[in-house]
């Protein structure tokens, strides 16, 4: 290949990457831009890339005079407990799939794969019917139960693949050292799966944070609304005040993006390196 052709190729490659980055970030950038544009400039400055002067008024309003902090708190509670519970359940189930050969394992895998296939919309009505006599509609607990069940199958597969990466010798060594299997699991294997646990936590948290349909269906009072539901009702209530809506949007984005960066960091890191051979 000639030198000039190679340089041209490199330039084309970098420009293509740049286009992708711009397309990926532009909508988020615009969200940020409108959220800091004062109302009087919003219409007059239309498609300018940055307002002539920026303010955080919209953020202050959203935080002080709306139900936003409540939605935020509800969402943190729901997503946090979902992530926490799912990770515990998925760790145990993933460990069973990774370490035991037992009759029925095949069927568990099939069952979990199937749940990934069928339409969740199909479950909306029956779940509502089942939860309402238990008093679990309009309640964060009900939402957590549903989210945990929806997220457990995928999280189980995720945890299983992390356990598969940890040599079996380690817990056998622990069992010979005098540990029960459960102790070997909790003291030796789980600490080594920390990156996997972090990834699972982050993944489930993000999924629960974004869930809309079941939250809309199961929750009707704003006191227990999660963020997506709250933001939607907020949008219909304040539908003229774009600055405030977008400020709320940016605030909703922060936890999800933080968790995303969190996952990235941990996925790369492997702790087992020193344990096996060298």
């Amino acid at each position: 290949m000639t030198r000039s052709k190679r340089i041209a190729g490199t330039i084309a490659h970098r420009s293509a990457i740049l286009v992708y980055i711009v397309v990926a970030l532009f909508p988020l950038y615009w969200l940020l831009k409108v959220s800091v544009t004062p109302n009087d400039l919003l219409y007059s400055e239309g498609v300018r890339l940055w307002p002539s002067h920026a303010s955080v008024d919209h953020y202050l309003f959203v935080l002080k005079h709306s139900d936003f902090p409540r939605f935020f708190q509800n969402s943190v509670i729901v997503s946090g407990s979902t992530a926490f519970i799912v990770t515990i359940l998925a760790s145990c189930a993933g460990y069973a799939l990774s370490r035991f050969a037992f009759r029925g394992k095949y069927w568990i895998v099939i069952l979990m794969l199937l749940t990934q296939m069928f339409p969740l919309v199909m479950l909306i009505a029956p779940i509502f019917k089942m939860l309402s006599p238990l008093g679990l509609t309009n309640s964060l607990t009900g939402l957590v139960i549903v989210y945990v069940a929806f997220n457990v199958p995928f999280a189980t597969f995720l945890m299983q693949s992390f356990f598969d990466g940890i040599p079996k010798d380690l817990e056998e060594a622990a069992m010979i050292d005098g540990a029960t299997r459960f102790r070997a699991f909790s003291q030796i294997i789980l600490p080594l799966t920390l990156p996997g646990i972090a990834a699972t936590l982050g993944f489930v948290f993000t999924a629960a944070w974004s869930e809309l349909l079941f939250a809309l269906m199961l929750i009707s009072s704003s006191g227990v609304s999660t963020f997506p539901v709250g933001l939607l009702s907020f949008v219909s209530k304040f539908s003229v005040d774009f600055g405030q809506m977008m400020a709320a949007g940016v605030l909703a984005l922060i936890p999800a993006c933080l968790f995303f960066l969190f996952i990235q960091r941990y996925l790369v890191q492997g702790l087992t390196a020193g344990a096996v051979k060298g």
């Binding site: 040599p167 380690l170 056998e172 010979i176 050292d177 030796i188 080594l192 096996v276």
Partner: peptide, 20 residues
């Protein structure tokens, strides 16, 4: 008996040291 109750020690080919 479970391994833990047999009071034996084992050295593995991979050493199986606890990395953490």
């Amino acid at each position: 008996l479970e391994p833990k109750d047999r009071d034996i020690a084992m050295v593995f080919q991979s050493y199986a040291l606890y990395p953490h």
